[in-house]
Amino acid sequence: MPHRLILGIDTSTHNCSVGLVNDGEVIGVKSILGKSVASENLIDLIDKLFSKDIKFSNLDAIAISIGPGSYTGLRIGLSTVKGLAMPRNLPVLPVPTFSVLERVAQTEWSEDLLLFIKSRKDIVYFTASIKDERFNLSPQIYYDHFDIALAKYPKISVIVGNCKFPVDNSRTLYIRYPRGDYVALTAWYHYEDLLPMSKPELEPEYFTSLELEKWNSKDRMKYS
């Protein structure tokens, strides 16, 4: 593979995280955990990854965790990346957030995994990552109550996501976050697949046609 320096950014959850990958090797990662930290800290975190040997101007591409996740978080990440990439016309590589989480989880577990990212209250985005057939760039994403997610995959005992939910004794829930270094790594491995998706009008993966319909009916009621 050609020499490539890739910056990876994940602001899809409360864990604002950035990482740097050089030739498929992680050479830096910085994260801050907390509510609404991305807007204030993202640029600082990115800046800390660079040194006089490895400069921002050496970057070949920027990879961004594209969703699903917190709408505002996703937009802060993608907007920042678009600004960062524009002057040198760097490729902006959109990595599915579940692909990042799958890669994070795979470092610890080799069995089947139920991955989830919280939306609001007890509603989550979720997907199954099956042993020997990991979904890589193409997760099949669902959006529903956490209980429904559990019921859909009764046999998967390892559950990995970004917050706590009650589960019965036969299963264990581990809190893990998608991370910037894994965003960059995923982009490094799948560079050629992701490159055609780099477009100026790129949007986060919101995954919420349902909610739009709800707004629709709510607003109609209010104003009719």
Binding site: S79, T80, K82, G83, L84
Partner: peptide, 19 residues
Amino acid sequence: LMGALLVGLSFGKGLSYAL
């Protein structure tokens, strides 16, 4: 609007840092 402001603000910060 918070969400709307953050889009412009984040984009501007990215540009300012890169330039």
